[in-house]
Structure formats: structure tokens, C-alpha cells
Simulated scan of single mutants.
Amino acid sequence: MKKARLEAFSDGVLAIIITIMVLEIKVPHGTHFSDLKELIPIFLSYALSFLYIGIYWNNHHHMISTVRKVTGNILWANLHLLFWLSLVPFATGWVGENHFSAAPLALYGVILLMAGIAYVILQSLIIKNEGKDCVLKKAIGKDVKGKISPFLYLAAIALSWVNTVCAGLIYLIAALIWLIPDRRIERILHEETATSNE
């Protein structure tokens, strides 16, 4: 399979996920701005999830751009990642409707943790298939962000039962860490292209 088909399918799924999430924001029956007050938790959960899906879309695009050959195990690992991301709208809706209560917030963290693990599995399989000297391996380096994120999710899941505000802030911090643009893959790909053209 050509990687363009894998990217197109993944992009489509992520676009649908965002669409489903925004449809959960129901229009209020009132005509005053005060009627929007009840939607604040729903909007905040949507904004956080939109940020996460956007980060996954961006990083997935960069990661797949390094792939030369799509294999069966990469296809299944990619579906595994999309499975967990497809649960984000459900968790987002539950968190928003229940004003960031403990159980919904903990489940939200479990889904983020599993999506993170699925992403690492996909990344590892790509490196295994492409070889230890591949572009992706060079680009991720020590992968500090990838190593920190699971601990942040686990801390937030535990804190959900103690202090939901702190748990929510940890989820936001984890997202912001990934929001900082990462130019490693682009830089390595540029270097590889320049070298091959010499």
C-alpha cells in the first residue's frame, strides 16, 4: 500500500473525530449571552480535545512522511492508534456534560494514555521496518516529550479523584508540551534530501 492512502484514511478519521466533537456543543434555546454559561465546561473540554487531535494529526503527518514502505504491521498499529483517538469524542462529551467530574476526567486520561502508547507502538514499528539509521529514528532522538507524557497522564488520572482542577491543568500542560513546534523530522528530511542531491 502507498503511504498516501494511509495518510488519507487517517486524515479522514481525524476530521470526523473533530466534527463529532463540535456537534456535541448544542445550541442553547435562549437568546442571551448568559444562556451560553452552561456551555462553558462543554466548550473547554472540546477546546482541549481539539488541541490534542490537532497535535496527533500534525505529528502523525510528520511521522508518516518518513515512511518508505507501508507494511501490514504498520497498518494495524495505525488502526490501533485511530481506535483510541476515536474514543476521544465520547470522553470529551462525558467530561463536558458533567463539568469535569472525577470519573469522566479519569477516563479521559486513560484514553489519552492509551493513544500515547499506541502512537509509540506505531513509531517503533516504523523504525523497525525502516531500519535503525532511518530518518524517524534520527529525528526523535531521546524523545523526552514521549517519555514524560505517560507520567503526566498517570498523574492526572490519579489526581482526578482528588483535585479535578489540577488534573485538568496537567492534561493541558501535556498538550502544551506537544504544541511547541518540533522541527526535527522536517530538518532531518531536508538534510537527507540535500545529501541525496549532491
Rank of each mutant, 00 (worst) to 15 (best):
V162T: 14
K2P: 15
S86E: 02
P150T: 10
L154C: 10
L113K: 07
H32F: 09
E130P: 04
E186Y: 01
L112K: 06
N129R: 02
E7H: 06
P41I: 11
T71A: 09
I20H: 02
S65P: 06
L87D: 05
I42K: 05
V110G: 14
E38Q: 13
F9T: 04
N73L: 02
V13H: 07
G96W: 06
I18N: 05
I64N: 03
K138C: 01
G72K: 10
E130S: 10
N58W: 10
T164V: 14
N197R: 09
V162Y: 05
L23M: 12
A115Y: 00
T66Y: 02
P181S: 12
Y153G: 04
V27T: 09
F9E: 02
A4C: 08
W76T: 11
I25Q: 12
H60G: 00
I140E: 01
F33V: 11
W57A: 09
T92P: 00
L81E: 00
S10N: 14
V165E: 10
I55W: 00
V88M: 07
A118S: 14
K37W: 13
E24I: 15
Y171K: 08
F100V: 03
I111C: 05
I157H: 06
L75C: 03
L85W: 01
V67Q: 01
L48C: 09
A167I: 09
S196I: 10
E97D: 11
A77L: 04
A115K: 02
